[in-house]
Computed example of a mutant assay.
Amino acid sequence: MQPSPNLHSADTRRAVSEPQQFPPLELVNRPTVPTEQAAHYLLRRPQTLRGWACAETFPDGLRPVRINGRLAWPVAGIRAALGVA
């Protein structure tokens, strides 16, 4: 009997269930970060940030940039929204 194609391997299930690990905000030296990483720093869900971008209701200084159809969030804006220098 062959395994069902809908079943995932243990590695796949583990990768889906484990949260992503991101470096501390003070160590980030890139100008922008992807939505998932920005949401981690802002303690929000990624879909919340996508909603902000769509409705343009993001906090002051946190306007995302669209790069090839994807959102990139400015690290300086994340720091400003958190009140971190």
Rank of each mutant, 00 (worst) to 15 (best):
T48K: 00
P34R: 05
I67D: 13
S9C: 15
P59I: 08
G69L: 02
A80E: 14
W52K: 04
P3M: 12
S4E: 10
W73Y: 10
D60V: 14
V16L: 07
S9A: 03
P64K: 07
L82S: 09
R70H: 14
H40G: 05
T12Y: 03
L25K: 07
P19I: 05
V75I: 11
G51V: 03
L25Q: 00
A81Q: 14
G51N: 14
P5F: 11
L25P: 02
P24M: 01
A55G: 06
A81T: 11
Q37L: 06
V75T: 03
A53W: 12
P5H: 02
L27S: 14
I78C: 01
R44N: 05
R13H: 13
Y41L: 05
G77T: 00
L43T: 15
A80P: 04
Y41A: 01
P31I: 02
H8S: 15
A55S: 11
N6A: 09
A53C: 05
P64S: 02
P3H: 09
L62Y: 12
T48Q: 00
Y41T: 10
L25G: 07
L7I: 12
P34T: 00
N6E: 15
L62M: 04
R45A: 12
R14F: 13
A10H: 08
A15F: 01
A10Y: 01
G51E: 10
G77D: 03
G61I: 01
R13N: 11
R79M: 11
R63T: 09
P19S: 10
L49E: 04
D60K: 13
H40P: 15
F58T: 07
P59G: 03
L7K: 08
P34C: 06
L7F: 09
F58N: 09
D60G: 06
T12K: 07
D60T: 15
L82I: 08
R50C: 11
Q47M: 13
H40Y: 14
Y41M: 00
G61E: 03
P24V: 00
F58S: 10
E36L: 02
R66F: 11
P34W: 00
Q37C: 15
L42W: 11
E18P: 00
A38D: 10
W52P: 13
